[in-house]
Design a protein around this nucleic acid. Structure first.
Lengths: 148, 148
DNA sequence: AATTAATATTCACAATTATGGATAAAGTAG
DNA sequence: CTACTTTATCCATAATTGTGAATATTAATT
């Protein structure tokens, strides 16, 4: 039984029913054919960001909905095809139609070295605050916006 | 040295220079401080879909560009938070800043039942060709643009 | 076909990640 | 504070994944 599958089931359970502690969650997982030790479950909960809080009717394990803001970084990484520059500006090539989203994401980074962006269909032009910063901004982007 | 980093370097090298065989690639990687055995490189190449083909000037290891069209569907699915409608229009909520990209994708579907889309920051309004088609267009979108 | 060049696979082992039992630590209730 | 409940961590081990040397297989050249 893979960790991934277990995590999915945990999400499902916590979103659909009221679970008061990890032990109870163990039993619910068992019912679905997944055996897991409390130690492992503790780690799972921490990885999934599960937290335990009081409610009117006692305690409950709560799982946060995926935070949109955090998801976007992964999206942007996938959308970017390349990041290159000449002496005065940086050009990002994206998947077709995705430049606007990438540009918007970069704008929100609020990097003071970046004056702004202009996005076409599959190209984002990044305008540096000073042409002298090109190299470091390029570095910054390649580390922060590329996968692998 | 992680496999991921190595893969990324391989992509870089194969996209920017002409490499005729794996042995040559080993040397180029070495130059960048990455030591790797041919066996491993062979696996890397297969994982990355690298293929060797003849060109006018001999052989060359080619790496396929990631097919944009196919990737986008997955992206769009992740970007869409909900799809709902009233009697006359369909509203898609997206992750912040992603509406333009989603709208553009829908436009390219060229579904004759869709007159057009208007995108704000995190909302896409889909305008049906006829208000009578709302239900079927909603169905179409929910099956084609949602995961789960 | 024979020879050489290039790549893929097998095998053994290394490195990393996942896991459970035992137990410590933290939290809750009295 | 003390007793009790719940969760987190330590440790040892299992399972998985990554790797290189040697070798087999495939492809190219003559």
């Amino acid at each position: 039984m893979s960790k991934q599958i277990r995590h999915r089931k945990i999400k499902e359970i916590l979103l659909s029913s009221t679970v008061t502690n990890q032990h109870e969650l163990i039993l619910l997982l068992e019912k679905r054919g997944i055996d897991v030790a409390q130690a492992t479950l503790s780690r799972d909960c921490s990885e999934l960001g599960v937290l335990r809080s009081r409610t009117a009717s006692g305690y409950r394990l709560m799982i946060p909905e995926d935070n949109p803001g955090q998801m976007i970084k992964g999206l942007v990484e996938m959308e970017i095809q390349s990041i290159e520059s000449n002496e005065s500006s940086i050009v990002i090539k994206t998947l077709p139609g995705r430049a606007h989203g990438v540009g918007s994401f970069i704008d929100h980074l609020k990097n003071p070295g970046i004056l702004g962006t202009i996005a076409g269909d599959d190209t984002v032009l990044v305008i540096p605050s000073s042409v002298h910063d090109i190299r470091s901004i390029l570095d910054y982007m390649q580390t922060n916006l590329l996968n692998n």
